[in-house]
């Protein structure tokens, strides 16, 4: 504002950068855009015996052909490997993955550009659903103990002779169906919970960061002035 000839100089100078900028922005829109997100989101849920892993970038784009490695969280041994499909999903059978009882599963998903994140599946999360779909041969000794008292307490009419027509499904089947249905209903809820728990940069965070940087500069200035 100090210079008197500023408006004239401005007019000549500003046209070129502005034109270039507009051109670049328009050109940039036409070119294929990269997935410049910072963070890979990983989410896994269980339906019956199947574990589905969903992954997307924090910008909302799905991760296509990302590598998925399912590990035993305590030993790090690789249990299942694969890649995500076009929707960014990957599923595996819980029965095939988990041989031993009650191990935590670490699901590591890696994407291009060096992105990687993981989701921990704890035994208490999957044991309920897994137990109901485990083959009968393994299950029979346990199920007699666990199912019998529950049967009495929850559904007393069943013990009566009237209530059990021969065609009714067994308790195990019922539990399995209920689990499956419940999990299917809960999965979106759990997904949105997981998304809500994710910390996105807020305006206050940005201001806080600037404050930190100014503060660090202040400390440095103070240290330099002491010398």
């Amino acid at each position: 504002m100090k210079h008197k000839n500023l408006p004239r100089r401005l007019a000549g100078r500003q046209v070129f950068p502005t034109c270039l900028l507009t051109l670049l922005l328009v050109g940039g829109c036409l070119l294929p855009s990269p997935s410049l997100a910072h963070k890979l989101r990983v989410f896994a849920w269980i339906t019956g015996d199947t574990v589905t892993v969903e992954s997307s970038f924090s910008g909302g784009r799905t991760l296509v052909k990302g590598t998925v490695v399912v590990q035993d969280a305590s030993t790090g041994a690789s249990l299942v490997q694969g890649t995500t499909d076009e929707q960014g999903n990957f599923s595996f059978s819980l029965r095939e993955a988990v041989k031993g009882p009650g191990i935590s599963l670490r699901i590591v998903v890696g994407g291009g550009e060096g992105h990687q994140n993981e989701w921990i599946l704890k035994p208490e999360e999957y044991q309920v659903t897994a137990a109901s779909s485990v083959p009968e041969a393994i299950k029979t000794p346990q199920s007699d103990q666990t199912a019998a008292p529950a049967k009495d307490s929850i559904a007393p009419p069943v013990t009566g002779a009237v209530a059990t027509p021969p065609s009714t499904i067994t308790r195990e089947e019922l539990v399995s169906i209920l689990d499956e249905r419940l999990e299917a209903k809960l999965a979106p809820l759990r997904r949105s919970l997981a998304q809500a728990a994710e910390h996105r940069p807020q305006f206050t965070d940005i201001l806080g960061g600037i404050g930190y940087i100014i503060g660090i500069a202040g400390i440095l200035a103070w240290m330099k002035s002491k010398k």
Partner: peptide, 20 residues
């Protein structure tokens, strides 16, 4: 440093994704 910190947080939607 502040400019760099802020610039990479503000995503501008562009094409199918977003850029910063």
């Amino acid at each position: 440093a502040s400019a760099f910190f802020v610039a990479s947080l503000i995503h501008i939607p562009l094409g199918p994704g977003s850029v910063h």
